[in-house]
Design a protein around this nucleic acid. Structure first.
Length: 443
DNA sequence: GCATGATCATGC
DNA sequence: GCATGATCATGC
């Protein structure tokens, strides 16, 4: 134990026994920290992570620390308090879970088994609480508390993720690490205020400070597994993952249909796809053996599947639309927590068809993450758009003919309008990526 | 062939 | 009822 607080009652739990720790933690279910530990109200610290520190100090009775060991070293248990949000369908992860920060100078010398991530985070005591605006953290109610270890199949993907992150450090590209590089285990940026730091294999470019993290989408899957509300189907098996990386396995499943038309593929699979606008998306799921709507690994990794149709010149026939611009929300965003940044730092899965004599033929598929340089250009576009909205200037957004990667264009059902910050109404607009840019991305 | 404004189909 | 992904229709 790390320096127990003097006078703390002995043996509320056995710090060497994971089950004892879990049982003791579970006494907080349906309660807030201050319900059981009124003394916590004296602590003045606020902000992100402060509830976790208060739980450590007032509930478990040890001082928060930044040790490379798990919080309960003898039991191998790392404590994680994590916020939930309430949406229509129930409780969901409010954000990713940040784990230990990455020491670029050390991590790349390790194997997965000796890595800082694995040493500290192989067994997590999850303490999910419902976050509420305008409520102080000691009053948040704990909803789910349980020990979490990674299922074998997830762990195969997480190992691969760890190797991807480390290989960027090794190749001197720590400054180009993106959350879209990996599937479940991410390398998220630390506070935007922290200065860039040295990386070991590249003396000329500093890198953002990052921490290992479980992606928000993966945290959601932890919750749905715990609450038995899984609604997705797997595209690959553990056995397959032992032989090949996820991306290669998925690509293979599509390769056997390269050169075939939508109709031919449907026929070969013995499925009916109809004529709707989402027929391609349905067919893609069928190719992966998915009968329903959700693909387990795509869902957990938050991979954006996008279908692209090329004309005979090899240019996509359409630009690619994203969400509507929320004219009010964008004003309180900064770049790193903006919708557009989030949308572009995800991993994409492009399914590319080629149009020929009114038929669409499957040409290829690829996983893609936006390169760092392009993201910097997207940032300039986003700032321009945000500034114009802030100035109530809705007449001069960057548009398709400006020839940039990103532009603003209308979107929405017949004549729909949306509110702006000053209460006026404007035609609904969306973020778009130009077909020229998509062409260069899919190569 | 492309830029642009507009709208559809689906699902939640 | 509306957001989202996708596509259409028109004009040049």
């Amino acid at each position: 134990m790390n320096s127990p607080i003097t006078g703390f009652p002995k043996m509320l739990y056995n710090p060497k026994d994971k089950n004892s720790i879990e049982d003791y933690a579970k006494k907080l279910l349906g309660k807030s920290l201050v319900d059981l530990k009124p003394a916590a109200s004296k602590e003045v610290r606020k902000g992100k992570g402060s509830l976790g520190e208060k739980v450590e100090k007032f509930y478990f009775g040890y001082e928060p620390n930044s040790s490379p060991e798990p919080d309960f070293p003898d039991a191998g248990v790392e404590l994680k308090t994590a916020p939930l949000k309430n949406i229509k369908k129930g409780l969901r992860a409010k954000e990713r879970i940040s784990l230990n920060s990455i020491d670029y100078t050390k991590e790349y010398k390790e194997t997965f088994e000796t890595s800082s991530f694995w040493k500290k985070n192989q067994l997590l005591l999850m303490m999910f609480f419902l976050h509420e605006a305008e409520v102080s953290d000691i009053n948040f109610i704990f909803k789910y508390i349980f020990l979490w270890s990674y299922p074998e199949k997830d762990l195969l993907i997480i190992q691969d993720d760890w190797h991807k992150i480390v290989s960027k450090i090794k190749s001197g590209n720590a400054h180009e690490i993106s959350e879209g590089d990996t599937l479940y285990l991410g390398a998220c940026t630390k506070s935007s205020k922290s200065r860039n730091i040295e990386q070991p294999c590249n003396n000329s470019v500093k890198a953002r400070k990052r921490a290992f993290s479980l992606k928000q989408s993966y945290v959601n899957s932890i919750i749905t597994q715990y609450t038995n509300s899984v609604d997705y189907e797997p595209a690959v098996t553990s056995e397959e993952l032992k032989n090949k990386p996820f991306e290669a396995l998925i690509t293979e499943k599509f390769e056997e249909f390269y050169g075939k038309s939508l109709e031919e593929i449907a026929q070969l699979l013995g499925v009916e796809v109809g004529k709707s606008k989402n027929k391609t998306a349905i067919l893609c799921r069928r190719i992966l053996g998915i009968k329903g709507r959700k693909i387990e690994e795509f869902d957990k990794a938050d991979i954006q599947m996008k279908t692209v149709t090329l004309n005979q010149a090899g240019t996509p026939t359409e630009d690619m639309s994203f969400k509507q611009i929320n004219f009010i929300d964008i004003l309180s965003e900064d770049w790193e927590n903006s919708y557009w940044h989030e949308a572009l730092t995800k991993k994409f899965f492009f399914v590319v068809f080629e149009e020929f004599e009114n038929q669409d033929y499957l040409k290829k598929v690829l996983f893609w993450t936006m390169p760092h340089q392009d993201l910097l250009r997207a940032k300039r576009f986003w700032k321009d758009t945000r500034n114009k909205i802030a100035d109530n200037n809705f007449e001069s957004f960057l548009k398709s003919s400006d020839g940039l990667d990103c532009f603003v264009r209308t979107k929405g059902t017949a004549g729909e309008v949306a509110k702006t910050a000053n209460g006026s109404l404007q035609k609904k607009l969306a973020y778009w990526l130009s077909r020229t840019y998509i062409k260069s991305a899919i190569g």
